[in-house]
């Protein structure tokens, strides 16, 4: 009889273990997470630096986002990279990464949330939005002595978004999935004139966003 009592107690413990496991399982299976890259291709013509460039991103233009919006629990920006695809000097000579040296004093990447302009009922494109000054600007990364050769069609400048920033972004992105990626370019090393002109600069941002959907 004692053996049965002990065994029954043991079974109760096992049941409790199972209940806790099941709770974890059921909790885990509430959600499905995946990462998707978003590509932001920006082409500048007759660009001069120092300068600040702004890319508008509206996730509503992406099917992966809009289709799952109703089930969206979280949307976190986890990583992004930045690279220069093409560059042509002011004298129309293309930049050659093996020959030319071009070093920019510093480059800053910032994220600013956008909001529809007050008088726009159905915002569609970048002209219908403006920076939301009620929310903080997030510094994603700042780099000094940026050698353009090292960014020229090279994908290894990957920036990880910190958890603290990511959590703030989650709350905003879910409800207002539009933002600006801002890049601030300093002077070119050795630059004597106030502005240095380029005929063409094509830059690329690949932003990876983690979506959590409820099943």
């Amino acid at each position: 009889m004692k053996l049965i009592t002990n065994f029954t107690l043991f079974v109760v413990l096992i049941v409790l273990l199972f209940v806790s496991c099941n709770t974890d399982f059921i909790g885990s299976v509430q959600n499905f997470r995946f990462q998707i890259p978003f590509y932001f291709y920006v082409n500048y013509y007759d660009k001069s630096i120092p300068d600040t460039s702004r890319i508008f991103a509206n996730l509503n233009e992406y099917e992966e986002f809009t289709k799952n919006k109703s089930r969206l629990e979280q949307a976190e920006i986890v990583q992004f990279n930045y690279w220069i695809d093409s560059l042509v000097f002011g004298n129309n000579q293309p930049f050659d990464p093996n020959k030319d040296t071009l070093i920019i004093e510093n480059v800053k990447f910032l994220l600013v949330f956008a909001k529809p302009k007050a008088n726009v009922v159905n915002p569609r494109d970048t002209n219908d939005f403006e920076p939301d000054t009620s929310l903080p600007t997030f510094l994603l990364g700042e780099f000094n002595q940026v050698d353009v050769s090292d960014f020229y069609r090279k994908p290894h400048h990957i920036y990880v978004i910190s958890t603290e920033i990511s959590q703030v972004l989650t709350e905003v992105v879910r409800n207002r999935p539009y933002f600006y990626l801002i890049s601030e370019y300093g002077k070119v090393i050795g630059q004597t004139s106030p502005k240095k002109y380029f005929s063409l600069i094509f830059v690329r941002f690949d932003v990876v966003i983690r979506f959590t959907l409820s099943i």
């Binding site: 199972f18 496991c21 099941n22 974890d24 399982f25 885990s28 299976v29 959600n31 499905f32 997470r33 995946f34 990462q35 998707i36 890259p37 590509y39 990279n81 994908p155 690949d206 990876v208 983690r210």
Partner: peptide, 16 residues
């Protein structure tokens, strides 16, 4: 041949 990403797991050590 652009950037790719993959789905994620459920972070489970025990599965029912």
């Amino acid at each position: 041949y652009k950037t790719i990403a993959y789905p994620e797991g459920l972070h489970l050590d025990l599965m029912v």
